[in-house]
Design a protein around this nucleic acid. Sequence first.
DNA 1: GAAAAGAACGAACGGTCGTGCTAAAAAGAC
DNA 2: GTCTTTTTAGCACGACCGTTCGTTCTTTTC
Lengths: 200, 200
Amino acid sequence: MQAAATATKGAATRDSIIERAYQMVRREGFEGLSIGTVASSVGMSKSGVFAHFGSREDLQIAVLDAAAQRFTENVFLPAIRERRGLPRLEAIGRRWMKWLRSEQGGCPMVSAAIEYDDRPGPIRDRVIVYQTRLRKELARAISMAVETGELKADTDPAQLAFEIFGVELVMHHDWRLFGFDEASERAERALDRLLASYKS
Amino acid sequence: MQAAATATKGAATRDSIIERAYQMVRREGFEGLSIGTVASSVGMSKSGVFAHFGSREDLQIAVLDAAAQRFTENVFLPAIRERRGLPRLEAIGRRWMKWLRSEQGGCPMVSAAIEYDDRPGPIRDRVIVYQTRLRKELARAISMAVETGELKADTDPAQLAFEIFGVELVMHHDWRLFGFDEASERAERALDRLLASYKS
DNA sequence: GAAAAGAACGAACGGTCGTGCTAAAAAGAC
DNA sequence: GTCTTTTTAGCACGACCGTTCGTTCTTTTC
């Protein structure tokens, strides 16, 4: 009996709790997540849900981990199948936007970054870990595009990663406030212009 | 006895309540704002504070209005003294960054946009009004720089405003998570690169 | 001065929150 | 089948929430 996807019955319900909590965080944010609401949503008692995590914070962390994992699976992993260099970098950018759109209720990672950016504690620490990792992966993809000669040799990968992140943030912002279509169109143009300004 | 800065005693304490609440929103966000905490912070009773606003939501809206006013006073109004065109546009960008830095606890407007982007109600409505106005003002400054011939004639003001907003957002994000110095430096470079790509 | 208006207080309300504790139910091992 | 472990429910707690109400104190107006 190796570790299967879900070994015991408890792990399965734990997963379904996280799934439900994940959906709620997208709408209410991490601080808006309450054990009672999650419990009634999955049809369990508060204490039943509570027993799976031991504290509200641990539940929040579990949701944060799930968000990070999903982001990686939906944005970075598929992009790896593209040829290293500009194609892969562009694939990341496009899949990133697609990911933001698919998260109808807002990206939990963005919420977490805003909510905990000055609230010290384990959640903030973990947010920083994930954001650092994301930026590093992005810079790595940029470096490859420099190596292939598709981007200028004097490109600062971290700087371009910073600027790409800005485009994704403003797309997220505008989409939620002003509607998807215009935000997505502008973001695509912004990304094209940005990459063009770095092309050799 | 014309309307002075604060006509009656009540209006004065009302202002001081908003001031305190404003500081708290920067750290805890709008949803984290509680009347009891504000009250004890200004040395009043909960009901005393409550009487000035009539509801928690009205207090939140008062803080939001104060944030918008301060932003205008600190970013747009001073920039108007610069010559219309590129100097004024650059002044807006620089003062914007300075404003983000001066708001040690995070910009309430950014918090509000994230917190209420999918929570219908009067707060979200007002956030959209302010964000629309801001974007329009920014586009207006860009248009002037096109008219003076400093930016390319085919510049889309709304598109450039979108992209500038992205830089400010990622600067806000990185600053809070990774520290000010690097974020500010990268944002300045990003803004320079961005404007350069639009210069005629 | 008195009278009216405004400002602040303190107690209490119904509600929700996270968290313990204990017992029942379910699942798995043998 | 029984026994043991895991999983869930039920209940109660203390704390905090926004809000209401009646009262008291202070300021303004005449």
